[in-house]
Design a protein around this nucleic acid. Structure first.
Length: 165
DNA sequence: ATCTTAACTGTGT
DNA sequence: ACACAGTTAAGAT
């Protein structure tokens, strides 16, 4: 059956983010002023208590991130993707704040050392930027690389963690 | 140091 | 089957 998702806004100093939840956890987080990708999003009117609690955690975690601090707690992350993508995203969550990795290293870590380019694709498909630190992944030569959400965001997030490029 | 090219893999159409 | 992508390593200039 189709997972029902609920969208809730998160107001921050940098604009209004949009979070989407399923019954399993946070599924998607969108940057402000960016059209929500049309996955299978179904809005519902009344979020239950479980989701409201997650949303509180998400908002708090996001704001800490944007303030350059490490969130003490995360909501359950339940992004919908292929097996490969899930591996990549899970691997990215392991990157400690303030550190970076290359697309090649991620590829090797998930057992597909040559799928570096595919890893780039998975990063671009990451539905939960900021919380899933796709911005900590740079090109092999420590260059900025690209960023689906806009390179300015990537630079900003990196700067917040004291990473120079 | 910068540019060009070829190799490689997952995903969408 | 084909083209593309948030790459990379190697070779040429």
């Amino acid at each position: 059956m189709k997972s029902q998702t609920i969208q809730l806004p998160i107001p921050t100093n940098d604009g209004k983010f949009l979070a989407c939840y399923s019954q399993n956890g946070l599924v998607e987080l969108n940057f402000p002023n960016r059209p929500a990708p049309d996955r299978d999003i179904r809005s519902k009117n009344v979020p239950d208590a479980k989701i409201r609690a997650w949303h509180r955690t998400t908002g708090s975690a996001l704001k800490k991130m944007l303030a350059g601090k490490k969130p003490k707690q995360f909501p359950p992350l339940a992004p919908a993707g292929t097996e490969f993508q899930n591996r990549v995203w899970r691997e990215m969550q392991k990157i400690p704040p303030g550190q970076t990795r290359s697309y090649g290293e991620i590829a090797r870590a998930i057992g597909r050392p040559k799928a570096v380019r595919a890893v780039g694709g998975a990063c671009g498909a990451n539905p939960i930027p900021v919380l899933v630190p796709c911005h900590r992944v740079l090109a092999a030569n420590k260059k900025i690389g690209g960023f689906s959400g806009g390179l300015d965001w990537k630079r900003k997030l990196l700067a917040l963690e004291g990473i120079a490029v």
